[in-house]
Design a protein around this nucleic acid. Structure first.
Length: 227
DNA sequence: ATCCAGGCGTTAT
DNA sequence: ATAACGCATGGA
């Protein structure tokens, strides 16, 4: 007889999703830190470009920047704002995001030599909110922080593990208190949540194909009543 | 045609 | 403190 507590439920869900979907191949969990390696800065740029935007669109913008060899704080600062805007246009909100890329570039030129930035400092940068800050810390610097996004909230409300009015921090703490503190676990879990949120636990959910419902972790059930 | 995407800052209640 | 709004492109 085994009890499913809310704590190990969080971990069980990870296991089920991982077994179902496999590794998601998000930003790599090895490699060197910025500025020794330029890859982490590309992750940072990607984190901004994908704000409320599909990765496909963000990646087009990233591709343009890569072609022009602009993936470095120095280059972004030096690039004329109109050029920058044009290059990142496919990611949407291109005026805001151009300004945000400049702001984060300035931040890393000023504050960072080798060490990992502080979350509170990242949050002071214009355009860096909690999710982007945590994405940067997790995916670029391998800091074990759990990234919460709209998918996470929607999905875990349905799983009855999160309340409707829980804040970003509330939700984050639920995960941090339930999981071993491991950056590669957090990396993979967040990516799996995004996968599940996109394909199954959508705004209009497809409960009939949900692996979590099949495994009896989720009792939420959605029926289309009309038509 | 409508809705949605790996949010954030500003402004109104 | 929390809610609503604008920002913008490309795919389903």
């Amino acid at each position: 007889m085994t009890f499913i507590t809310e704590k190990n439920k969080i971990y069980s869900i990870y296991t089920i999703l991982y077994n179902e979907y496999g590794p998601q191949g998000w930003w790599p969990v090895d490699g060197k830190y910025f500025p020794e390696n330029e890859k982490p800065f590309e992750i940072i740029v990607g984190a901004i470009l994908t704000q409320n935007t599909s990765w496909q669109n963000a990646d087009r913008a990233l591709y343009n920047l890569r072609q022009k060899k602009l993936i470095s704080p120095q280059k972004i600062i030096c690039t004329k704002i109109d050029v920058l805007r044009t290059l990142i246009k496919p990611s949407g909100y291109y005026k805001q995001k151009a300004a945000r890329l400049r702001a984060i570039s300035l931040f890393f030129l000023k504050h960072l030599k080798e060490e990992v930035p502080k979350r509170e400092d990242l949050l002071k940068v214009t355009g860096i909110g909690p999710e982007t800050a945590d994405s940067i810390l997790l995916y670029a610097f391998h800091t074990p922080v759990f990234v919460v996004d709209a998918y996470t909230k929607r999905m875990f409300i349905r799983l009855d593990l999160v309340e409707k009015d829980d804040t970003y921090t509330d939700i984050q703490n639920i995960f941090l208190n339930s999981l071993p503190c491991d950056h590669s676990l957090f990396n993979e879990y967040h990516a799996l949540i995004v996968k599940q949120g996109k394909e199954v636990c959508r705004k209009r959910p497809l409960c009939s194909i949900c692996i979590l419902r099949k495994k009896k972790v989720c009792s939420f059930n959605f029926f289309i009543t009309g038509k």
